[in-house]
């Protein structure tokens, strides 16, 4: 039988994409240099805003986000955790998963 390999990079990308769909998330904070350039160019969708570590088969994902102000931060963060967890588990089959959300900033309303 062959092997299936899902790279950290792919997981990070998946996590970013599903975090982006969460209500209340208005920005992602790029974790790579290229990401920073891309986000400067306004291409949020191409940004990778998550880091992935693997510790004893446990996959640990940190996601860096900016939330809309005037919104319950704790609730949105919880939603991100459950939404990202659900998506990654469903799409990759990874079972042991830890999702951390780092709220880097809050966007003022315009």
């Amino acid at each position: 039988m062959g092997k299936i390999i899902v790279t950290k990079n792919a997981i990070a990308k998946l996590a970013t994409l599903s975090a982006m769909e969460c209500y209340g998330v208005v920005g992602l904070v790029p974790t790579t240099f290229t990401g920073k350039v891309l986000s400067l160019l306004g291409k949020a969708e191409l940004t990778k805003a998550a880091t992935v570590k693997i510790n004893n088969k446990k996959v640990i994902i940190d996601i860096y986000v900016v939330l809309q102000s005037g919104i319950k931060v704790s609730e949105v963060a919880n939603t991100i955790v459950s939404q990202v967890e659900y998506k990654i588990k469903k799409l990759t089959g990874i079972k042991d998963l830890e999702v951390n959300v780092i709220v880097v900033g809050v966007k003022r309303e315009v």
């Binding site: 982006m20 998330v25 208005v26 920005g27 949020a44």
Partner: peptide
């Protein structure tokens, strides 16, 4: 709509 990057 403002509070989400990618409105579904």
């Amino acid at each position: 709509y403002k509070a989400v990057i990618k409105p579904v």
